[in-house]
Design a protein around this nucleic acid. Structure first.
Lengths: 155, 155
DNA sequence: GTGGATGCAAAGTGTTTGCATGGAC
DNA sequence: GTCCATGCAAACACTTTGCATCCAC
């Protein structure tokens, strides 16, 4: 788990960046969109749309809006979808965004605790897979599952 | 893609194996269960419950039954769930079953073509992740995504 | 003022569950 | 004959969509 300073005041340069690219594609900078992106920038872990709704509770943001916003942000490359295999989507700040970085997850099979993992597969493995089958633009998804220390002790 | 002989007559020893362990847990060997397991043993690729229903069409097996059967088979270790991130479950013969083996998948982002991949992450990576975070019984899920040769040519 | 964003409700999709009937043993 | 498995329909959870209203620009 990496610690990080919780800047309540987001960096102005970054802020302008996404607002600009959103406007360029005839999108509008609304309060909901700002709140959602700020949340994901501040809390560097995967959030389900429901998590986001709960976190923004006082602002009462509709789930449909959250879904639409996340889809838009995904297209803009601001956030990325994380799939931990439990049938619900999660989103976190994109790895190519300021503050984001390429990583994977280790999930407790029992309590669903999520730990960020910075290790990765050898780059050579991915390129070999791509080459051997003639695929292009190959990416990978790697997640680990196990029993966390707490659950081992039957807590 | 590995080729394999399509024995229309399943090996009798194997057959008895699962039937025995099913009966031991007060389960019954029914026609539906036999058909489903035979299908997954014959066709070594991930099947959605809907795929299975279609493949068994003449036998008209209810989806609810297929779901229940697959869940049961999963618990027995006969089949394993494959998650390719499109929000639907797939099942294939378990890697510890005769005929099965540990592998991953390469999926075309456009046409969803699935290629089996026998490469894997270094065992040392998995054990390191487990050790560093104190997790036990750690397994991994690794899937590749890319653009297949056909879709590259805009077919 | 215009066109995109939002809230709300309805519709979709994949999956699970309740219950009466059917079938394995 | 006893229970478990099945089919059918209803219920569920997550997600998407239609539409009138709202608001960023």
């Amino acid at each position: 788990m990496k610690s990080h300073p919780k800047h309540e005041v987001p960096d102005q340069a970054r802020r302008d960046d996404w607002q600009k690219s959103l406007r360029q594609r005839s999108g509008r900078v609304t309060r909901s969109r700002q709140s959602i992106l700020e949340l994901l920038r501040r809390e560097l872990r995967p959030y389900t749309p429901q998590d986001i709704a709960a976190a923004l509770a006082p602002k009462r943001c509709d789930l449909a809006t959250i879904y639409r916003t996340l889809t838009r942000f995904e297209q803009l490359g601001l956030v990325q979808r994380v799939d931990l295999g439990d049938g619900r989507s999660r989103f976190e700040i994109s790895e190519n965004q300021p503050g984001g970085h390429h990583h994977h997850h280790l999930v407790c099979r029992q309590c669903s605790k999520i730990v960020e993992i910075d290790d990765c597969i050898p780059a050579e493995l991915e390129s070999r897979v791509a080459r051997q089958h003639g695929f292009l633009e190959v990416t990978h998804r790697l997640e680990f599952f196990g029993l966390c220390p707490k659950c081992q002790r039957g807590v």
